[in-house]
């Protein structure tokens, strides 16, 4: 049998934080602020644990076992150790060290998105091939219309009367669906949060 202490702690902490939303002017802030601060610190430690697990739990094991991608794992570990050692030595605010981000990370990540552009363009060729229904058709038309709006090329028709109003109205249409999606997501988050807060779901047990 698992100890009920852990869910009780989770509940009490959640209750204090939640109460702060509804009674912002009360004295709850005195206890709420340090609690949030501790949670921020713990989040950082959790991130550190995740990194250690990734590097030494996953890639180190692959390297040690000489599994299929052991060279790849070796590269990951080497890159990690080099970056970490350099960062500890120079500090993250050092302009030279920041090149790690601006000259290595950012170019790779941005290039991945650039490659995605071509992949999406190719995929859009078959946009209607998969879905021959009303939803597919509306999706198809919507993509074309909003690509046109995003490109800004409709500006050459700016002298057409009421074009501004039409464009504004068209750009408002996604609000309806997006609002429905947002409300649905908020309802889901609310229910999930309540379940976790009340202990019905306990993701911290492990």
């Amino acid at each position: 049998m698992r100890s009920p202490l852990i869910p009780i702690i989770s509940f009490i902490v959640g209750a204090i934080i939640l109460a702060g939303y509804f009674f912002p002017g009360s004295g709850l802030a005195a206890i709420r602020t340090p609690m949030l601060d501790w949670a921020v610190t713990l989040s950082g430690v959790a991130g550190l644990i995740a990194i250690i697990n990734l590097v030494f739990g996953v890639h180190w094991r692959r390297l040690r076992d000489s599994s299929k991608d052991y060279l790849f794992s070796g590269l990951v570990i080497f890159a990690f150790l080099a970056t970490f050692a350099l960062g500890i030595f120079l500090g993250p605010t050092n302009p030279d060290y920041q090149k790690v981000v601006t000259a290595i990370q950012m170019p790779i990540e941005a290039s991945l998105m650039a490659v995605l552009a071509i992949t999406l363009a190719f995929s859009s060729l078959r946009l209607l091939q998969r879905q021959h229904n009303w939803m597919g058709l509306f999706f198809f038309i919507s993509v074309i219309v909003y690509l046109l709006l995003n490109s800004g090329i409709l500006s050459f028709m700016a002298n057409i009367p009421s074009l501004q109003e039409v464009v504004s109205s068209i750009s408002l249409v996604p609000i309806a669906g997006a609002r429905g999606i947002l409300i649905g997501v908020a309802l889901g988050s609310l229910l999930t949060g309540i379940r976790i807060w009340l202990g019905s779901d306990r993701p911290y047990n492990g």
């Binding site: 869910p7 702690i9 939640l18 609690m35 959790a46 997501v185 309540i194 976790i196 911290y204 492990g206």
Partner: peptide
């Protein structure tokens, strides 16, 4: 480690509830 995880999850759940309720649900309705 379940204790600090429970602490984090409790805070996170409350943040999700409060944010969804006051930040999205009420305002979007």
């Amino acid at each position: 480690g379940n204790l600090p995880m429970a602490y984090l999850v409790g805070v996170g759940a409350a943040i999700a509830i409060g944010g969804s309720l006051l930040g999205t649900l009420f305002t979007q309705v």
